[in-house]
Design a protein around this nucleic acid. Structure first.
Lengths: 237, 237
DNA sequence: AAGGTTTGCGACTATGGGGCGAAAACTATG
DNA sequence: CATAGTTTTCGCCCCATAGTCGCAAACCTT
């Protein structure tokens, strides 16, 4: 395992990102239209070749920077590494896929070959990118349930109704605002800001504003089902 | 993204596996003692370079076959790909780590340089292998809670007490046999075989034997916390 | 038959989540 | 200024899941 690289054939390595955002109340992915063969003209995930001295995360950040302002990414995590030898028709190429998230209040400037597409209604994608997008969506859905990952989809401040719409778009089904508030408050994921949103155009009671306590990913430990013996997590306080 | 490999420098790529088994009531990992520099003499994870036309999973299976009978692996899944440019002192090397599991009733033949080590009491490991082992253990612990992954730690048939000991060893804390049985039966993960184990050397009531319904990984959907509207999963029947 | 040991299981409790409807807080309109 | 319409908030009740406890059952040995 200590031999120099030259003794072993090495595959090309690219990084790809599934960048998701709730736009117009719908979960959308950032795609880019290929200018060259193979798959010329097809939509595909942003990314590119790994450069020397870059970690995979450096690499995907660098490539994404050509499409969007990377500082607007609220979350980035590795999804999986794909290695089917036939996944690229031209070369032996591995791909490490990342999941990136953008808060819903951001509208990044995009180059002409890049645009958002509804995840529920994707065009045919290049390579195996279609399945990668779905893997990213599944990861998002799962983590919304048992982590505080919602922070990565939401603006700094929001009402419960607004947050409900974000969750509903990402999860793909209706979400009860009552439940959402109770669950996230009990888990101490959300906290009230004390302020209120001015009421909307159709009137109605103005909603209180909340924020996520932290923008670091935290796992709700309640999900360790076969718990260690002892008292529960959050005493009645 | 369509250029031939030669236009881009490519890193060496190795696959590694954290192979875990409950042995002597304790979670242990399969390690191998390096014969050469770097890290000569240190314990490290089994694995090796990726060969052409191999997927990553092919690769790790092939390398593991040199250490154990791969047919005895009850589960194998990708963990993560490590890319710190300094993770290997000699070359630019990426590593894709896998988690492998072996049922507790198996005692594979091992080559002389290979042995089991308690995960709670590991020697210093080569490269970043120490953190990889811990990542593997964390993945196992999480999935034991919300999937049927226990099948990969257990023999074909077992009593609840035996299964409890396996869970306790993997989870690192006591587990209630009553709870374990109720939870896994309700989830329809376990089923009774109808048979019984002869009672042990110290006497006592003989335990009924159970088996896992399937050896395919299944996720308990109960863990989608913000559920879609509608009735619960398993009606009283 | 008696005592020791382990498993099986029912009863009770605690906790977290879902559903529903009434009350509250606003706007717009007359 | 009252009334109607809209949206948010919140309390209440129910249910599903799981953690705890203790006794009964089933087996052994002596």
């Amino acid at each position: 395992m200590s031999e120099p690289t030259t003794r072993h054939p090495t595959p090309a390595h690219v990084t790809l990102a599934v960048v998701l955002q709730v736009r117009d109340g719908v979960l959308q992915a950032l795609l880019w239209q290929r200018a060259r063969e193979p798959f010329k003209g097809r939509w595909s995930l942003p990314g590119g070749y790994l450069a020397e001295r870059d970690t995979l995360e450096d690499s995907i950040r660098r490539h994404l920077a050509e499409k969007v302002d990377v500082r607007e990414l609220s979350h980035l995590e590795q999804l999986e590494t794909l290695s089917d030898p036939t996944r690229s028709p031209r070369e032996w190429q591995l791909a490490t896929a990342y999941l990136g998230l953008v808060p819903s209040d951001i509208d990044p400037e995009l180059p002409g070959d890049t645009d958002w597409h509804r995840v529920d209604d994707l065009p045919p994608l290049a390579f195996d990118h279609g399945s990668i997008v779905l893997a990213g969506r599944e990861r998002l859905r799962a983590k919304l349930s048992y982590t505080n990952l919602g922070f990565a989809l939401a603006p700094d401040e929001f009402t419960i109704s607004e947050l409900r719409d974000l969750y509903a778009a990402a999860l793909g089904h209706d979400v009860s605002a009552t439940n959402l508030q109770r669950v996230l408050l009990r888990r101490e994921v959300l906290e009230p800001t004390g302020r209120q949103r001015a009421s909307g155009p159709t009137g109605g009671r103005p909603g209180s504003l909340f924020r996520f306590r932290t923008s670091e990913l935290e796992i709700t430990d309640q999900f360790a089902v076969l718990r260690p013996p002892g008292p529960a997590r959050l005493p009645v306080a």
